[in-house]
Every structure is written in structure tokens, then in C-alpha cells.
Amino acid sequence: MRRAVCPGSFDPVTRGHLDIFGRAAQLFDEVIVGVLVNESKKGLFTVDERIDMIREVTKDFDNVRVVAFQGLLVDFCREQGAEIVIKGIRAVSDFDYELQMAQMNIGLSGVETLFMPTNPLYSFVASSLVKEVAKWGGDVSTYVPELVERRLAERLRAVRAN
């Protein structure tokens, strides 16, 4: 069975992420969305909330599984029985950084990285940008699934109220 890992923080998951998950799901028997637990970084959503949203928006993909992880990506891949990491690339700047990570990962454990260019519709979309636009009342419905848009609005209302 060919397994691939799509790692990230996904705070929140965007349509760009979903595009990569869906395309990867067509290429591999199983795609594991690895949600990074980064205790030094405070996200807008908890890891459990991110996992729930990703599970909901990927429920139509029979071969996508969502799992939290922390530590080295190569260790997570080994634990999951995955030999491939899928990384979406939006711009040359993404490639510069991700290439270094890919070379480190292959050196550490032989895990290969497949770079997948992002659909041009989402080439500028980043979770941080989506959060910033939503924070100021902008319409992000084009960039995130409806569930995510709703939860993002709810969370930002709660943050403003506190």
C-alpha cells in the first residue's frame, strides 16, 4: 500500500489545502493529513478543532485519514508507514524552504518529498492571510469551505468579545 503524508498546521484548513489533499488522494492508496502539534505556537484553533474540521471537509475522500503529530516529520512518516511527503508549492519562496526540508528528510530517513504546484486559483491563499482578512470582516468564502468559514467567524467573534 502506498501511503503519503500531507503535513501542516492547517490553522485553518483552506481550499488550497483541500485541492492538494484531493489530488494526492488520486495518486496514493492512503493520504494521511498530519496536523502538527506545535506547543510553542498559539493557534486560533486547537489541534483537536483543526482535526475535526479537516475530517469533516475531507469526509468524501475514502482514503484520507487525519492524525495529529509532533516531533520530526520523518518519525511520523515511519510510524504511519508512509514513504512520501506531499507538499503544496504556491511560489518560488515556498520551494526554496521546502527543498531544504525535503533534502534533510531524505538524508535523515529516505523519506521522499513530492512537490505539487498549487492550483492557480489558490496560489496566494495562506491560512494566516485568511485569518487576517476574516478578522477585519472580509469575505473569505472563496478560500475556505463553508464549515471553516462559519467556525472562523464564530471564533473571531469570541476573541473580540473577550
Rank of each mutant, 00 (worst) to 15 (best):
E112V: 05
A91F: 06
E154P: 03
Q80T: 03
G43Q: 03
G43K: 02
A161K: 10
A4R: 04
Q70D: 11
L72Y: 02
T58I: 13
E146V: 14
F95A: 01
P117D: 11
G34R: 00
V37Y: 01
R157S: 12
S123E: 14
I51A: 03
E132Y: 06
L72K: 01
L152D: 04
F124C: 12
V74M: 02
E83S: 12
V47N: 07
E132V: 05
S141T: 09
Y97S: 01
M101H: 06
V64W: 09
R90N: 06
F76P: 01
Y122H: 11
V92Y: 08
P7E: 07
V85Q: 00
A4K: 03
T142Y: 15
L147K: 11
G71N: 04
R2Q: 12
I86Q: 00
K131A: 04
V5M: 09
D48I: 05
G16R: 01
F76H: 08
T113A: 00
G22P: 08
E30S: 12
R155A: 13
A134C: 09
I54E: 03
C77G: 01
G22R: 07
I84E: 02
K135N: 13
N38E: 14
I54P: 01
T142P: 12
D62C: 14
M104A: 13
V148Q: 09
A134Y: 07
V130L: 06
C6G: 01
V31Q: 08
M104N: 09
V31G: 09
V159C: 07
R65W: 07
R157Q: 15
L114K: 03
Q100G: 14
V92E: 10
L73D: 04
N119P: 04
I51M: 11
D94F: 07
R157C: 15
F28E: 15
C77N: 03
G88V: 02
L108W: 02
V92S: 11
N119T: 03
S93Q: 08
H17L: 00
V148N: 12
G34W: 00
S9I: 13
Q70R: 13
L18N: 05
T14P: 04
E132K: 08
E149H: 04
L156W: 05
L73M: 13
V57Y: 00
W136P: 13
D94V: 01
S93P: 03
D48W: 07
V66Q: 03
V47G: 05
